[in-house]
Design a protein around this nucleic acid. Structure first.
Length: 459
RNA sequence: GGCGACGUAGCCAAGUGGUUAAGGCAGAGGUCUGCAAAACCUCUAUCGGCGGUUCGAUUCCGCCCGUCGCCUCCA
């Protein structure tokens, strides 16, 4: 397949460094607040990338970290009156719950910064020995001026960055753009002993240590949101290549576009976020995935209720095509849809086009079903292609319990209405139908009898 | 200020140097239905503005207008 690579700025043919093994490292979250739909979007994208690579026959080794020590965690824990560990545990749980509900496959490994401290210290030590890093005032900094090609990934130069005039003056730094590898501990902060005194890892260094230790360089794919390109990924490259003395650290850099809420990016610091839990209370996971994937992964996407509702109706359309009963008629060739789908996915994961193919296939299924042809094979294809996008074709699960409890009564009402219709008591029959509809139960009369289901779109 | 991205129908969103510019949602008409629902069929865009390159540009180049992202923690 072809894949856009932030490093080269082009869409390149994807070829892993060794055979059919793919080493994929995706930057994870800092668990100090609930997982939001922007996270869901990002991890849906990498989930689809992984599913598709696996479909192509690659063996993907997927590692994703948790940055479980940083300023915000310390601050929030104090605010909540719990330990850092408790806070982190709570939000890691929340993260897993949300991602599982989105049908995102779990990574093979979820390393945590706090569990890698000896390795991180080792990495920093190597950098200090190679003079890429220097201790100052209890901290250790990375020397960006010694790093060749610094700024290459984010297409900027040190001079250009200085011109931004937003760099903060720091007495300890040799150069304003130098960044911290090790933060000396302040009173009351969690800390570890190190050759430079007690402290904790800086933000970027953990990913270098974890990816090099868990996967080894070169990584085939390094992914994350576009907001990580600078400084996080730029710094990761600088550190990692300085540490190993080899390049590239990662061969394909894949970045997803950011989700916006209203006119701005959704982010924890702006506080304008919708949590995954909230989104899933109103929409099925399929609808959200359809929504995310119906725009290209590198472009921005505006999140909103109208978009969710439209996606839910679309999901219904696909579900309906799969819900049709098969006939014993002649078969027909549905393989062109498959080819079209793969062609779209091969071209830098063009999920909008792939989804369009899914809808085309659904229409063909409905059409041929009307003509009395066999549709089982095409339905199986739709299911299979959909699963490459992580679609389950299940309706929303909320209210499942009520629905089960109410089932015998709904069945009874539906059967009664059937009798009324047979007796041509249409006014009464419609009254029953309207009454059920007002409780979110939708009836559908088919030649095989009346079907009912709970309304899938949130209301 | 520096760097980057984007501007396609009522809304969301693909795509291409040249026969009919995907798909979804919404809308209109029709078929089916006791009526609906679902489904099917049909209809709804000269691709931000101005120049340039070209036989020909929505697609390439320049400028302008507008929007967004990064440059600070962030998927």
């Amino acid at each position: 397949m072809r894949l856009y690579n932030t490093l080269t700025g082009q869409t390149d043919q994807f070829v892993p460094s060794s055979g059919n093994q793919v080493k994929m490292y995706v930057c994870g979250v800092t668990p100090y607040s609930a997982a939001h739909v922007g996270h869901a979007l990002s991890y849906v994208v990498f989930d689809v990338l992984r599913r598709y690579l696996e479909h192509l026959g690659y063996q993907v080794h997927h590692v994703q970290n948790f940055t479980d020590v940083d300023d915000k965690i310390i601050q929030r824990a104090k605010l909540a009156g719990v330990s850092e560990n408790e806070l982190v545990a709570r939000y890691i749980d929340d993260f897993y719950r949300g991602m599982d509900a989105m049908n995102i496959q779990r990574a093979h490994d979820y390393p945590r910064a706090t569990q890698e401290v000896p390795g991180i210290i080792q990495t920093i030590q190597t950098l200090v020995e190679k003079e890429f890093a220097y201790p100052a005032g209890g901290d250790v900094y990375f020397r960006v001026t010694k790093s060749q090609g610094y700024g290459h990934l984010s297409h900027r130069t040190l001079d250009g960055m200085m011109a931004g005039a937003r760099v903060q003056v720091d007495e300890n730094k040799e150069h304003p753009m130098d960044f911290v590898l090790w933060k000396g501990a302040k009173p009351g902060e969690p800390s570890w002993d190190s050759p430079w005194g007690p402290g904790r890892p800086g933000w970027h260094i953990e990913c270098t240590t974890m990816s090099l230790n868990r996967l080894g360089d070169p990584l085939d794919i390094h992914g994350g949101g576009q907001d990580l390109v600078f400084p996080h990924h730029e710094n990761e490259i600088a550190q990692s290549q300085a540490c190993t003395g080899r390049r590239p650290f990662a061969r394909y850099w894949v970045h997803n576009g950011l989700l916006q809420l209203g006119e701005e990016k959704m982010s924890k610091s702006l506080g304008n976020l919708v949590t995954v839990e909230e989104a899933l209370a109103r929409n099925s996971a399929d609808a959200l995935r359809l929504y995310f994937l119906s725009s290209h992964y590198r472009g921005p996407l505006r999140y909103g209720d109208e978009g969710c509702a439209a996606a839910e109706r679309g999901a219904d359309r696909l579900r309906n095509a799969l819900g049709l009963s098969d006939a014993v008629g002649a078969a027909w060739d549905c393989s062109p849809f498959q080819q079209q789908f793969f062609a779209a996915m091969d071209e830098d994961l063009n999920t909008p086009r792939a989804i369009a193919t899914l809808f085309d296939l659904a229409r063909a299924i409905n059409h041929h079903h009307d003509d009395g042809l066999a549709i089982g094979e095409a339905q199986a294809l739709l299911r299979r292609l959909g699963s490459l996008l992580g679609l389950t074709f299940q309706s929303r699960e909320t209210g499942e319990q009520d629905h089960l409890a109410a089932k015998p009564f709904i069945d009874l009402l539906v059967a009664t209405r059937e009798d009324l219709r047979k007796a041509k008591q249409f006014a009464l029959a419609d009254h029953v139908r309207d009454g059920l509809a007002s409780h979110g139960v939708v009836l559908e009369d088919t030649p095989q009898g009346t079907r009912w289901q709970r309304q899938t779109s949130a209301s």
